[in-house]
Structure formats: structure tokens, C-alpha cells
Design a protein around this nucleic acid. Structure first.
Lengths: 129, 129
DNA sequence: CTTGACCTTCCAGTCACGGGAACCCCTATC
DNA sequence: GATAGGGGTTCCCGTGACTGGAAGGTCAAG
């Protein structure tokens, strides 16, 4: 399989796949002409990466997860720990965003949004502490 | 005021303040020795930026907001539009994260997290579509 | 005179790619 | 056989909003 084909099947852009090779997440063979040649296992790893990235895991998380996946003697606790750390980071981000959202929503609600210059949003931003 | 002083008062690291000058968000005077010299208005702008950034506005949003703030003839509708766009982007991000969170939470819940290798998290990540 | 806390500029790195240039390879068609 | 196109390759730069660090100038105190 050339890169275009595997890209289509894994749902990742060729650029991303080359990048993943560069940082050592995959290591496809090369044909005589220098083209990358992907086999079923490469495709499988790429699909894994695609899914893991879609869940928001960092590249380093993905590296760890792939290693655990390859390790037959892994403990599921190790996998769970990676996922829980990630979940905690997500929750933190969500709550930060929620807090922004709440403040911002309040400000927007209180702004007339007409052609007059008075604006509680600017007033808030420029408020002295 | 030197940069250290204004940094403390505005709650921003000196590095960030230098960066803001570099991209044209502020333009403090210079003393004879080459040191930046900040006045009350500079501090005010920096506090404004600090607050706007804390609400998640991008630097370009901040530039726009500062311009609107300086414009006595602005329409509050313009400010509100910037804020509403931003709110929409935040909402989108939150819902993406929520969706990750939900999936991830399910996977974590279903993983024993012991010393056996069986792991529904890895199973999901490696599932063929 | 030296120490130490400031300040300055400039360069490199972050994260996970994406755009684009310049060039090679393979197949099909005229 | 020349050419057109649609692959592929490497390499370098840019993203956003900073952060870290090196190398060096400035200032007040002891």
C-alpha cells in the first residue's frame, strides 16, 4: 500500500502519516523506488493512532498506549492510569472553559448590542481590580 | 515604571509584556538606558489584555477589543459580536471535550485496572471500523 | 570594586501538524 | 518517443502565544 491508499483507509492525511513516521510512531518499509510501503499492521497502528488522537490523547500518550498495546504482559491498570490522567486534564479544561463561558455569557447578556458606545463588556475588561 | 514593576501590577510575566510590545499591542516609552518605561495607560492596557486573555480571547480579538475600547464612537454591537463569536468557539470546544469525556469515561469505567492484560480501552482503540 | 538584581536583545523550542517548493516515479495517451 | 497527469519524496517555514536560556548592559548597596 502506498501512502495515499493507507491515508484513505486510516482516515489520516499523508502529511500526518509522514510526521508519525518521523517521530517514530510507525516504521513502514520502503520500496525500491523510495516509496513507503504499508502493510496491514501499519494500517492498524495508524487506525489506532487516529482513534486515540480523536479521543484527545497527546502524541506521547499515544506512544505509551501503543507500547502497552504491543506488550502482551501489560497490566490493564497501566492503561487505565494513562486514560485517567487524560480524563483529568480534559475535565480541567472543560471547567476552565465553562468558567469563561459563564462570565462571557453574563457580559454578553448585559450588553445592549446597539449603535451606542456604552458597553459592559469593555467596562469589565477595563475594570481596575 | 520598569517592566518588573508593571509585570507585578498587571499580573503578567515580563516575557509576555515584551512579546505584546513586539506584536504591537503596547508601545511603552524608553528611558535613556534603553529600559522600557511604562505609564498608567500602559498598565491599564496590560490589565485589559490580562483580563481579556483570561476570558480566552485570542490576541487578534484583543487587538480588536483594544481598538474598540479606544474608539469613542464605537457601537456596542461590534464589541458584542466579537464576544459572541468567541462564545460560540468556546461552546464548540466544550462540546468536543464533553464528547471525548463521555467516551473516555465509559472506557475507563469498563476497564478493570488490575494486573491482567485484558483492557477494553485498548480493545476500543484497536477496533476495526 | 564587586555582588546581585534588574534590564536588554536574540535564538530556540513548544504541539501537532499544514502549506508549498522543488524534484522523482509511473502509467497512459498521442 | 514525448508528454501530461497524478502519484510519491524531502526540506523548510509557519502556526499561537508564549517560555527558557544565553550573552551582555545598568544600577544601587555594601
Amino acid at each position: 500500500m502506498n501512502i495515499g491508499e493507507v491515508a484513505k483507509r486510516a482516515g489520516l492525511p499523508p502529511k500526518t502519516i509522514r510526521y508519525y513516521e518521523e517521530i517514530g510512531l510507525i516504521a513502514p518499509r520502503r520500496d525500491g523506488n523510495g516509496y513507503r510501503s504499508f502493510d496491514g499492521q501499519d494500517l492498524h497502528r495508524l487506525a489506532f493512532l487516529h482513534r486515540a488522537r480523536a479521543l484527545g490523547f497527546t502524541i506521547e500518550d499515544c506512544r505509551t498506549l501503543l507500547a502497552l498495546y504491543a506488550d502482551e504482559g501489560r497490566a490493564s491498570a497501566d492503561v487505565k492510569a494513562v486514560a485517567e490522567d487524560h480524563l483529568a486534564r480534559i475535565d480541567e479544561k472543560i471547567s476552565q472553559l465553562q468558567s469563561m463561558r459563564d462570565t462571557l455569557g453574563e457580559l454578553i447578556r448585559s450588553c445592549a448590542g446597539d449603535n451606542r458606545p456604552d458597553c459592559p463588556i469593555l467596562k469589565d475588561l477595563s475594570a481596575k481590580p
